[in-house]
């Protein structure tokens, strides 16, 4: 009796051994949501995880609960990638950001589905993904243009050609907005990498799915490994580490928690890193995109270049 039932549910195989159809009882293959460090997808070294749930309490996935060591490894990777990324031609960085947008466009459906799992409506999810793609295109365009806009030739009272240009600050640690899990992530990291920085990102704690899937987009878009590193885990746990690491040059925090902001201001003094709080920006509007976001993680380098000044003939440049 039992044997017969087993036969019914098993796959039906034709005479030449090729499968005709799959069983209706097929188990779905679920994705393991892992972190993204140095262009690889490891699990957290700590072996910890947490369960991400939606508003109804439905389990979405087991997600890596990253540790301090994961963060350290990510910073080492990001530092290693900084030289190569910042030295690339600005135009090439633009091409790569554009490529990211292309890849995101191709996987739109998956992102809409994930956003809907995370309590978004279909219309809202579609709008969010479209905006995220457009935002990447926006910053792809700015990659080789913001330098001209923000550079200056300065008037000085000596025989020097004096000019100032923006240069990327280095490794930036980012705690992204908790609610706009895809658009917030894209809006905050795009200006950072467009300017030639590398970054370590902590994804939204309650809505981490899109961040991990976005790592797959980055990984398939000619972006060198370790320019963007994405961790998942608890904001409260990671916030102090994100801001006290001596090899991080700037930190961006996107929530309104004033205790965390105060702590960040204090700890950042250790190596005088820049701290930015993007805590009241509506990422869904044009307010969420501006070349000034790129300038936040740039340093201004001023050069004094000696020039000839022969017999009062004036500067010769």
């Amino acid at each position: 009796m039992e044997k017969q039932e087993l036969k019914k549910s098993s796959l039906s195989i034709s005479e030449n051994g090729i499968e005709k159809k799959t069983s209706s009882k097929r188990l779905e293959v679920l994705k393991t949501y892992k972190i993204y460090i140095g262009g690889q997808f490891p699990r957290t070294e700590s072996g910890r995880y947490y369960v991400a749930k939606n508003a109804e309490g439905k389990q979405l996935a087991n997600v890596c609960l990253s540790s301090r060591k994961d963060f350290r490894d990510a910073v080492v990777a990001a530092r290693g990638a900084f030289g190569g990324w910042s030295n690339r031609a600005a135009f090439n960085r633009g091409q790569i950001l554009y490529r990211m947008a292309e890849m995101l466009e191709g996987r739109k459906g998956q992102f809409i589905e994930e956003l809907m799992h995370q309590d978004s409506s279909k219309a809202k999810a579609e709008k969010e993904v479209n905006l995220a793609i457009d935002r990447l295109i926006y910053y792809a365009g700015w990659c080789d243009k913001f330098q001209q806009v923000f550079s200056a030739v300065n008037p000085v009272a000596s025989s020097h050609f004096n000019f100032s240009v923006p240069e990327p600050t280095g490794v930036v640690s980012v705690i992204v907005p908790q609610n706009d899990s895809l658009l917030g992530l894209v809006s905050v990291i795009a200006p950072v990498i467009a300017g030639g920085n590398t970054c370590v990102v902590l994804a939204s704690e309650s809505k981490p799915l899109c961040a991990v899937t976005f790592a797959e987009v980055i990984n398939s878009s000619d972006m060198p490994g370790a320019v963007v590193n994405i961790l998942t885990g608890k904001v409260a746990e990671h916030a102090p580490w994100f801001v006290d690491h001596m090899d991080v040059n700037a930190t961006i925090y996107c929530e309104k928690d004033s205790t965390v902001q105060k702590m960040m201001r204090e700890k950042s003094a250790l190596n005088v890193k820049r701290v930015f709080f993007y805590d009241s920006i509506n990422w869904n509007t044009d307010e969420g995109q501006s070349p000034y976001f790129i300038m936040d993680t740039q340093e201004i380098k001023t050069t004094w270049h000696p020039i000839e000044n022969i017999a009062g003939s004036g500067a010769g440049y």
């Binding site: 350290r72 910073v75 530092r79 580490w241 006290d244 690491h245 001596m246 090899d247 250790l270 190596n271």
Partner: peptide, 8 residues
């Protein structure tokens, strides 16, 4: 107690 940078 904090991670260091090669710069220093």
């Amino acid at each position: 107690g904090v991670y260091q940078a090669a710069n220093y």
